[in-house]
Simulated scan of single mutants.
Amino acid sequence: MADDSSSTFQAGQTGLVVRIPEAEPAVRRWRERLDPSARAGVPAHVTVLFPFLEESRIDPLVHAALEDVVRCHQPFDLRFERCGRLPEVLYLVPEPAAPLIRLTEAIAARWPEAPPYGGRFAEIVPHLTIAQGQEDAVLEEIEADLDGGLPFASHVSAVELMVHDGTTWRARASFALGDPAPLARDRPRDRPRDRP
Rank of each mutant, 00 (worst) to 15 (best):
R191F: 13
G148F: 15
T47C: 03
D165V: 08
L49Y: 10
A173V: 07
V163D: 00
A137W: 08
E24Y: 01
G149T: 00
H164S: 04
A2F: 07
C72F: 05
D145H: 11
T104D: 02
L16R: 03
R170T: 13
H127K: 04
V69Y: 08
L146M: 12
A171Q: 11
A40Q: 14
E88L: 08
I58V: 08
V46E: 01
P60D: 01
P116D: 11
L103M: 00
G148T: 10
Q134C: 14
V62S: 01
R19V: 10
F152R: 04
V69H: 11
V27T: 07
R193V: 09
P126M: 08
L34Q: 03
A131H: 03
R29V: 11
E113S: 13
R187S: 09
L92I: 03
V89E: 07
S6D: 12
R189G: 14
D77G: 12
L34C: 02
P180F: 06
E88C: 08
P116C: 05
E113I: 07
V89K: 02
R170C: 14
D4G: 09
W169D: 02
L146D: 03
R102M: 10
L128Q: 00
E67V: 00
R110V: 01
D136Q: 15
L161W: 08
L66M: 15
A23R: 00
P43C: 06
R191P: 13
I130D: 02
E113W: 06
I20P: 01
D186S: 12
E160N: 07
D77W: 04
A44S: 08
V89P: 00
D35H: 05
D59T: 12
G166K: 12
C72I: 01
I58G: 04
I130N: 04
V17W: 05
A98F: 00
A23F: 01
E24F: 01
P43F: 10
D136I: 09
R31F: 11
G15T: 12
S154M: 02
C72M: 09
D190G: 09
H155V: 05
S154F: 01
E32M: 14
P51K: 06
T14D: 10
D165N: 15
R185L: 12
L90C: 07
A109D: 14
V156R: 01
V27N: 00
A181N: 03
D77C: 11
L100P: 05
R170H: 15
E88A: 13
R31M: 06
A64Q: 15
S6N: 13
D186M: 13
H45Y: 13
A11G: 07
R187C: 14
A26P: 04
I130V: 15
V27Y: 01
P192K: 08
E143H: 10
P36Q: 08
V17Q: 00
P36S: 09
R82S: 15
D35C: 03
L86Q: 05
W30L: 13
